[in-house]
């Protein structure tokens, strides 16, 4: 029984210690919107992300009010459209579903699957990206197309010109190892 107890204790205690987690709150998120004859980009340096290799979970979120398009009027329009007073975050929670070798230091294509939530709407999505293990941690890059209608977001109009429903999203973040236990 002593052996069993020791085994269970080791299992419980060592589990989180061996589970490597990577975290950052200074990632970059960028979206590009198209209106006829013109594109504009909104950027934030406040993307928060965590990847846990023990269960391959992926958890990202961003405070939408940190997005800056370089034009205060446009920022305001964006926040009104996204109703950030009610839904301040865009977030993804899911897991890595493709093969991933935590020991490899080469850039690895990965697929994550999970729930993306914005404007109070949630949709299951599958996103392709890359993870590169570096000395500083995990460098994560991904891009995908977000369709505003999927989340019940009415594309804003700039006078009579309507912003395209499809928004190109890019993220890049270096997740640093987290000491747990």
């Amino acid at each position: 029984m002593k052996k069993l107890f020791t085994f269970l204790t080791m299992l419980v205690v060592s589990f989180p210690l061996s589970a490597q987690s990577f975290y950052s709150e200074t990632g970059t998120a960028k979206f590009t919107s198209s209106v006829p004859l013109h594109n504009f980009t909104g950027t934030s340096e406040s993307l928060v992300g965590m990847i846990k290799l023990d269960d391959m979970s992926v958890d990202f979120y961003i405070d939408l009010e940190t997005l800056d398009t370089g034009n205060a009027k446009r920022d305001k329009d964006m926040l009104i459209t996204l109703e950030t007073d009610k839904h301040p975050f865009a977030e993804f929670f899911g897991e890595i579903t493709s093969d991933f070798d935590p020991e490899s230091s080469s850039e690895q294509p990965v697929t994550v699957k999970g729930d993306f939530t914005i404007h109070g709407g949630t949709k299951e999505v599958e996103i392709d990206g890359t993870i590169t293990k570096t000395e500083g941690g995990l460098l994560v890059k991904a891009d995908w197309i977000l369709n505003l209608e999927d989340y019940d977001i009415e594309p804003p109009r700039l006078l009579i010109v309507k912003v395209d429903e499809e928004q190109a999203i890019e993220i890049e973040v270096l997740l640093k190892p987290v000491e747990e236990g």
Binding site: V12, P16, E25, D63, P88
Partner: peptide, 18 residues
């Protein structure tokens, strides 16, 4: 204990940046 710790892999607490 095990499942208690397992819950650590739940979503992070969302906090406002601004």
């Amino acid at each position: 204990l095990f499942f208690g710790l397992e819950s650590l892999s739940a979503q992070m607490q969302r906090t406002r940046a601004v």
